[in-house]
């Protein structure tokens, strides 16, 4: 019997988001850290899930160049002051998995924790791998998220209690001569994804970056209207 891996509680979080105030109480270093915690927190709250419910969940976070600024800032300290300029506070924040790690600590998520750093396509790849983990039975529930400068999106992917489903994921790299002649930012992939959710069933999401990496995700909706009402941009 085909398993229907479902998406629920999709939340976009930007700096103007109403849920930002919930996260403001948490001490954070990066603005995007607050955004990710906000979008995940809203998704979990919307689903009525507690820490105990998500302890064994997986979390897959796609990032682009969002932590480059802190890497540059950290190393400028070293370049200017030598060993004394190396900040033990900022250094851990130069590790690309820091955003996902902060989310695991904040929400008590102890399942598989993967950060995908495939440039603009990272968010879609995060959705793809979360689908893989749930459909294979590795986890019952996964948080799939994407973070770029100024905005984050997070959703829950599981087998039940959801509003819409993913029926298949096909990821492939196409012939460079045939690839779509378009270069996307991760923000673009958020828009494409959201548009796909709001339009129709069985709509493939397809995106490509300059190197020709292309991802396609087929989606089927059970209740797109309900989902749209929960989404915030």
């Amino acid at each position: 019997m085909e398993k229907r891996v479902k998406i629920s509680r999709l939340f976009f979080q930007n700096e103007r988001g109403p849920e930002g105030s919930q996260v403001a109480l948490t001490r954070t270093i990066l603005a995007e850290e607050r955004l990710l915690l906000g979008s995940i927190g809203s998704s979990l709250a919307g689903a009525g899930l507690t820490r105990a419910d998500i302890e064994s969940a997986g979390i897959i976070v796609g990032i682009d160049s969002v932590i480059d600024k802190i890497k540059e800032s950290y190393f400028k300290g070293v370049a200017e002051e030598g060993s004394l300029g190396a900040s033990p506070l900022f250094f851990p924040y130069t590790s690309p998995n820091v955003l996902a790690a902060r989310a695991t600590i904040h929400f008590g998520i102890k399942g598989p924790d993967i950060t995908i750093a495939s440039g603009p396509l990272s968010f879609l790849k995060a959705v793809s791998y979360a689908y893989c983990l749930v459909s294979s039975g590795t986890v019952g529930l996964a948080v799939a998220a994407g973070v770029t400068e100024g905005i984050s999106v997070a959703m829950l992917i599981g087998l039940d209690k959801s509003d819409l489903s993913i029926t298949s994921v096909v990821e492939s790299r196409v012939d460079p001569d045939l690839r779509p002649d378009v270069s996307l930012s991760m923000r673009d992939t958020f828009s494409i994804f959201q548009e796909a959710l709001s339009v129709a069933a069985d709509l493939p999401v397809e995106a490509s970056d300059l190197s020709g990496n292309t991802i396609r995700i087929g989606l089927t909706f059970d209740n797109g209207v309900a989902l749209k009402e929960e989404a915030f941009v």
């Binding site: 480059d68 998995n97 950060t115 790849k125 492939s172 790299r173 460079p176 190197s211 020709g212 990496n213």
Partner: peptide
Amino acid sequence: TGLSSGAESLAKRYSLRGPVTTIST
């Protein structure tokens, strides 16, 4: 700064048609 450049370069050089992904954990 783009962590994905390494895998993408290999994918191009060998004309790989499968998934091309960079992870950082």
